[in-house]
């Protein structure tokens, strides 16, 4: 499985923070700043023969939110890419929506770097 992780979040700080952490752990990281660009990025990467091993996505983003993103992703060729939701949202309804959309995991911010790496390891080796 590919060691490439796609991070979808509107905050460049969050993206960079995840990127640095994962890169230190030996992963390759791609970025997108909302659900819409996330979908485009998945397409672009897959066309280039670089299918992401997993996706880490925020929920609350402009243009396209994380839940819609996951729903749309699961309709297309990205169907089998596991998505970890990384968000401050912890409401049961939101989690439920995420699960129904097809999210594989839910991690609430703020997160510890070790914790993130552990979760990512479950999906991508």
């Amino acid at each position: 499985m590919s060691g490439l992780v796609l991070v979808v979040d509107d905050s460049v700080v969050l993206r960079s923070s995840v990127k640095f952490t994962l890169e230190e752990a030996g992963y390759e990281v791609a970025e997108a700043d909302n659900g819409k660009t996330g979908l485009d990025k998945v397409k672009e990467l897959m066309l280039a023969g670089k299918r992401p091993g997993m996706i880490i996505s925020d929920v609350n983003m402009p243009v396209m939110d994380g839940i819609t993103f996951i729903k749309e992703l699961k309709q297309g060729a990205g169907k089998f890419i596991p998505v970890l939701v990384l968000t401050t949202e912890s409401q049961p309804a939101m989690k439920q929506a995420g699960k129904e959309a097809g999210a594989a995991g839910w991690l609430v911010k703020p997160f510890k770097n070790d914790q993130l790496i552990q979760v990512v390891r479950k999906f991508v080796r």
């Binding site: 509107d10 905050s11 700080v13 969050l14 609350n60 983003m61 911010k109």
Partner: peptide
């Protein structure tokens, strides 16, 4: 929503930093 998201992102990013 835009205003809320801005405040929300500031909080989140400040936390990471």
């Amino acid at each position: 929503n835009t205003i809320f998201r801005a405040a929300h992102t500031i909080k989140g990013s400040a936390g990471i930093s």
